[in-house]
């Protein structure tokens, strides 16, 4: 008998022939009852509480805002995923070198990069969470991990209020990373300090819907 068969046999013997399977009471809150503006405000507030920097703009302001954030951080080497709207980097000065990761950048190369700029799949207001799903505007998981600074553009149409709403919008078969503030630890005296292995600086740009809604069309996800 293989370990598989033996384990399954032990489980069946343990639970017996007719185990009672309780119904799942799903009367918890699934939908948030906030309108879009209030959801974005709540998201901004909750993200900021985890010491991420929060910025607001309309879609036309994204390029200037990105350039400003890069300059104030002193970033000189940036990486972006292939599907990032090209105009987002249109105001980045030539002193900043920008690499587009086509899946071929090495670990060493990415480790030498200062900053990554991405979009996001979903943002959850109540928990201040952005979720990346490796779509073309977000890229491979590694590019948002090794640079010490992550600039994440969140279009308001991506913001939901609750965790259930957020998970409902995601495709579980994609590689998913849920991010709530910069990396942190509570391992010393259970006191939270920001900044360990993941990016130590997180800037979140909340962009009003509009032009970005078009580039965010996710119909390609449907097989």
């Amino acid at each position: 008998m293989t370990a598989r068969e033996a384990t399954l046999a032990r489980i069946r013997a343990a639970i017996g022939d007719a185990p009672a399977v309780p119904a799942i009471p799903r009367n918890y809150r699934v939908r948030g009852d906030l309108e879009a503006g209030a959801a974005a405000d709540l998201f901004a507030q909750r993200v900021a509480e985890y010491r991420a920097a929060v910025h607001h703009t309309d879609p036309d302001g994204i390029p200037a805002l990105i350039a400003t954030i890069l300059a104030s951080a002193g970033d000189t080497r940036a990486v972006v995923p292939t599907g990032l709207p090209a105009d987002w980097l249109s105001e980045v000065p030539s002193s900043v070198s920008v690499c587009t990761d086509d899946g071929g950048m090495t670990t060493e190369h990415l480790d030498a990069v200062d900053v990554v700029v991405t979009g996001c799949a979903v943002a959850i207001a109540e928990t201040g969470t952005v979720v990346l799903d490796a779509a073309p505007d977000q890229g491979r998981r590694i590019i948002t991990l090794l640079p010490d600074h992550h600039i994440c553009v969140v279009s308001v149409d991506r913001i939901v209020v609750t965790v259930p709403e957020g998970l409902h919008r995601l495709d579980p078969t994609r590689p998913l990373t849920m991010i709530s503030g910069p990396s942190a630890t509570s391992d010393i005296e259970l006191t939270r300090v920001e900044g360990v292995h993941g990016p130590r600086n997180l800037d979140v740009i909340i962009a009003t819907a509009g032009r970005t809604a078009l580039v965010r069309d996710r119909s390609w996800l449907v097989p």
Partner: peptide
């Protein structure tokens, strides 16, 4: 004691 932990990874 956080609303959400900083990172959750899901892979299939």
């Amino acid at each position: 004691g956080e609303r959400m932990n900083p990172y959750t990874s899901l892979w299939t």
